[in-house]
């Protein structure tokens, strides 16, 4: 809706501003929680920095790898062309994979319990992600299919979405889902000592994404056995979260049994 936000003579891209605002706000909340608990906030900063570095590198490398044929390598030393390659295009899953590897490598190297941070601050991931989707709405990307019902949106001419057509509000819908997921995880963590926040986030987001994908109209989403790539990934996410949950439950119950067996002999 607003690809650029104007502050006097200064124009800032709405997407960058929105996602950065979400990330900064999530970090402020995390910092306040860490301070209240008397933990070391530098550990979280370190993990985040490594994760960001990994995400940037992984997303860019996979993008270059996927598009290796399309890049004009004879022009790569031209300043403007190189900047264009560096500024445009990322592959999300490349970033995700290398970010996870980087975070766990950093945790091992600096002796930080990464899983504890993942579990305690997972609710901030969908929280920040929701702001990213608001950014998509501002830029007009990731738009929905043509739709005339309630809450339908029509984008102006300067956005990436087709202008003048009534569309499904896919970005605000996903944003609302992400805020709800964040709230559910936070409530569970505050009310009961919930240890499956990461699994629950992956499970709930997978389900939301699976259904919302049907209402996306931004790109030609190829179908494989009736499902799009993102839907297959959502299925994998849900399956993985259930497997991790069941594995952890089994591990805990076997540990409890072992303790029960040991106690009478003491």
């Amino acid at each position: 809706m607003h690809p650029f936000i104007h502050f006097g003579s200064l124009s800032l891209p709405g997407y960058g501003l929105s996602i950065t605002f979400g990330a900064v706000l999530a970090n402020v909340i995390a910092a306040l929680m860490i301070r209240k608990r008397g933990e070391d906030w530098l550990d979280l900063i370190l993990l985040e920095a490594y994760g960001l570095g990994g995400a940037f590198l992984g997303a860019k490398l996979l993008f270059l790898l996927v598009n290796i044929q399309k890049i004009d390598w004879s022009r790569i030393f031209e300043k403007e062309y190189f900047s264009g390659v560096m500024r445009g295009g990322f592959v999300f899953y490349g970033g995700l994979i290398l970010a996870i590897i980087a975070v766990f490598a950093a945790a091992h190297f600096h002796k930080i319990d990464a899983m504890r941070y993942f579990r305690e601050y997972t609710f901030l991931l969908p929280f920040a992600h929701a702001f990213g989707r608001i950014g998509c709405f501002m830029a007009g990307c990731c738009y929905g299919v043509p739709y005339d019902g309630r809450f339908a949106v029509t984008f102006p001419e300067d956005s990436f979405a087709p202008s003048g057509i009534s569309l499904f509000p896919s970005q605000p819908a996903e944003s609302v889902c992400l805020f709800i997921i964040s709230a559910i995880i936070l409530i569970l963590q505050l009310t009961v000592s919930f240890r499956y926040s990461l699994e629950l986030y992956v499970f709930l987001y997978g389900i939301c994404r699976f259904f919302l994908e049907r209402f996306r109209g931004d790109t030609d989403r190829g179908l494989y056995f009736g499902l799009s790539t993102s839907q297959w990934i959502a299925v994998l996410m849900v399956t993985a979260s259930v497997i991790f949950y069941l594995y952890d439950r089994k591990k805990i119950s076997s540990e409890e049994k072992e303790q029960d067996c040991v106690c009478p002999s003491l």
Binding site: Y15, I19, T20, G88, G89, F92, C136, A139
Partner: peptide, 10 residues
Amino acid sequence: SILYIACIAC
């Protein structure tokens, strides 16, 4: 980040 981040789709 504010200046650089652009949506992948964009």
